[in-house]
Design a protein around this nucleic acid. Sequence first.
RNA 1: GAGCCUGUAGCUCAAUGGCAGAGCGCCACACUGUGGAUGUGGAUGUUGUGGGUUCGAGACCCAUCAGGCUCCCCA
Length: 422
Amino acid sequence: MANKIQSVKGTREFYPEQMALRNFIYEKARAASRAFGYQEYDGPFIEPIDLYAAKSGEELVKKQSFTFEDRGGDLVTLRPELTPSLARMIAAKQNELTYPVRWWSFGPFWRYEQPQKGRAREFFQWNVDMLGVDSPEADAELIAVGATFLRSVGLSPELARIYVNNRRLMDSEFDNLEIPPETRLVVSNLVDRRSKMEPAKWDAYALELGLTQKQLDGLKDVLGNFDLWKKNDELTRLFAALEALGVAEYVKFDPNIVRGLLYYTGTVFEAFDTTGSLRRAIFGGGRYDNLLADVGGNPLSGVGFAMGDVVSGIILQERGLVPEFEPSPAQVLVTVFDEKLWMQSFALAAELRQAGLNVMVSPEPAKLPKQFKFADKMKMKVALVLGPDEMEKGLVVVKNLLNGEQVQVKREAALDVIRRIL
RNA sequence: GAGCCUGUAGCUCAAUGGCAGAGCGCCACACUGUGGAUGUGGAUGUUGUGGGUUCGAGACCCAUCAGGCUCCCCA
């Protein structure tokens, strides 16, 4: 180990088993996206740092992104998120796209953060966005896409919940409490931290930030009022739509969901594992009204969410929802009897592949027990034996590895016998 | 960026400052035309890395790397 070069901190190596999990998440995300008519797209993996600097604080970009100078002296960065790229892509074709635009993507992202459980420096993220329609019903559709994913991987409403809030609602509540706009960001941050702090400490912290006792009491009333949504038109429409879309059981109003991001303007939502070991969100998103302003487009409202593969992967594993790993894509092994019949086995394997089966054949004339052990470890379903006896009569032995039964059949009939087992 | 915990065989983990071990897995054989089960035997290692203290360090000290927990952050 000593002089081996280690993998970069916070990166993961995807051995076949982990790759299967990643692909499982990808397939389910793809299916949920397509079920609602979303089109797959992708942006570049490296971008000019300015793309992010325009939107986020420069300090943040420098601290948490992988940035380097290319040979031409330009600063480029490994993309930390997709939204700015999406905004640019939309802006570039703003007048030729058919709205509403429904796009989804799944790809790698990089953030220079402290790796820990649920967080890596290189990760995959599923992004889903709808642009061009500003309605609570559109918001509901995005939530429904997320819920469809949860349902499809076996995360029932008991196991995972989507919590919803609305920025405009909270703003009007802040107005009622006479919390001035310039301290709202701080207050949002405060709300975000509530679940992580002891109540007494949180109170003290709130007062420290400049809230009056009266404002603090009012804020706590707001955060404890789970019926608040009923007096908000956007949210009542949202929940009616969620009901009709058949995903209402997944969704709950929660005034404590604020999400740190500046650019959300209306509905915000986050999905959480209800009892798991991770406090991190499975996915999160919301409505943003000014997506294109920074990249030179005309105003266009959108709603979207993103889900990382790290947290979702851990939850699926902890819940035992990952399908059993199948080591070999080939379910059929053609054994090699001995050196003389080696090429005969190769030819038989080729024949079966021609017929559309995935077939492995031993690349060496190893002992039969060894070849069977291999098939067993690879969890293959069928083994064929082509020995001298079979060769002579134009037969082949087909063995069902699941129940141990084997039959000797004519070579031409082998394909049907195999197909019946698979 | 800060604090704390951990690092020993492929994996999970033992070992009072005194000969580095167990279980599982792996390999071979029992089984010369057939896997899983069983039995017998076998190999496993620069104790993360680099220094230091000591007659003697896996253990104690310092540094460093990696992982975990928490804070920060989450565009």
